[in-house]
Amino acid sequence: MTSTIPATIPNSDATTDSLHLRDILRSLPREVFTKNRRKAWLTALINVLMVGLGYWGLAIAPWFLLPPLWIFIGTGLTGFFVIGHDCGHRSFANRRWVNDLVGHLFMLPLIYPFHSWRILHNYHHAHTNKLNEDNAWEPFQPEFYNSLGSLGQWGYRLLRGRFWWVASIVHWGVMHFNWWQFKGKDRQKVKLSAIVVLGFASVAFPLLIATIGIWGFVKFWLLPWLVYHFWMSTFTLVHHTAPEIPFTPADEWNQAQAQLFGTVHCDYPRWVEFLCHDINVHIPHHISTAIPSYNLRLAHRSIQQNWGDSIRECRFSWSLMKQITAECHLYNPEDSYYQSFKDYHIGR
């Protein structure tokens, strides 16, 4: 396993012209697409028990054990999101209403509207790394960045730099409660999801504060929620961001190239992988969203056998995050890759 992102990208004209997503799908074992009801519900049960265990510890632990418990619970809550994520892709259960119900329930403590996330996230999968279309960590183009004004530029520099870990909160607040941006039946579904989580928050938060005070609210909800958003920001940034991964204009975009070579597999500490259900085994998930999370490792081994010399694999580290947040800032129109803020200002 490599410790850094490979320095080369398979981007020859022959590869671009001949590679199709259906060919990659045919190379995968058929069993990776099979839903297993026992595995799905056991995963959900274990996740609930782990988070419950963390909250029990939080209730009885001395003050110096609170930080590791916040990290443990927040990571477990990220696992809640991953279960909702499978539901959003209809890979948790066969029945749609079961996916919708479970997705709402597991995203409820995170105050995350299920349907708005589902629709926007599926759009990301349909347009991965396509310039002006992808809605996940797409780098700003220089012209747009210049139009923001000093305050907007400052905020963008923070989110693309050392404060990347709060970007998920901004994305959550700005994009997922505005049901007016959706149309038809989607608008009604998004409105329902938003009302459900807002209604839950309007009851649960005052009740929490009334029973255990402001500090109790911070201790039992806010700080684990911030840890959850740290992982959400980190996971999603690493999934598709590297100096060698391009954002391609629509007329040059190749679906198979984007999903196979524009997605990063990242190894995290095993306890993180366990609590978050291997969501960072991410390449097969972009080859097909129908693969349940518990089958991702099997699918990835197959991809390694067929494409091991070309796919991107890395290991989570602070040096990795430093590289990404120091280099991957603005879209570079000359080559479709990234340029840093420093290089952009030097080149102007």
Rank of each mutant, 00 (worst) to 15 (best):
P6T: 10
Y344T: 02
L320F: 09
Y55F: 12
I214A: 10
I73H: 01
Q141T: 14
L296N: 04
A59V: 00
K219H: 14
S27R: 08
T263D: 13
Q304S: 14
H239A: 14
Q153C: 05
L131Q: 09
V102N: 00
G161E: 02
A93W: 04
A167I: 01
H345A: 15
A242D: 13
I60P: 01
T236L: 10
L28N: 02
W215E: 13
H127W: 09
L101R: 07
K130T: 14
L69A: 06
I71A: 11
R348M: 11
S302H: 12
S193H: 13
I311G: 04
P62W: 11
I324Q: 02
D309H: 14
G103K: 01
A299Y: 08
H286E: 07
I24K: 01
L260H: 02
H171I: 09
V170A: 14
V48E: 05
M107L: 12
L198P: 00
L110N: 02
F316N: 01
R90E: 11
H20L: 10
M321Y: 07
H124T: 04
H240D: 08
Q259I: 14
F81W: 12
E313C: 07
L25E: 15
Q305Y: 08
W307H: 10
D13R: 09
K183T: 03
T2L: 06
L19P: 02
Q259P: 00
H125Y: 11
W165E: 00
W271K: 05
T75C: 15
N47Q: 13
L298H: 07
T15F: 15
Q153M: 10
I287M: 02
L101C: 15
R348A: 03
N47C: 14
N306F: 07
G155S: 06
L58I: 04
I46V: 13
R312Y: 13
I60S: 07
I214L: 15
K130S: 11
A326N: 14
N306C: 08
L58V: 05
M175K: 12
K322E: 13
R30T: 15
F341E: 03
R301H: 10
A326K: 09
Q339V: 12
I287N: 00
L223H: 06
G199C: 08
Q304N: 09
E244R: 11
M50S: 11
P243F: 06
L158Y: 06
L222H: 01
G57P: 02
P62V: 08
A61N: 03
W63T: 06
R37Y: 10
A126T: 13
P67L: 11
E327F: 02
S116L: 13
T325D: 09
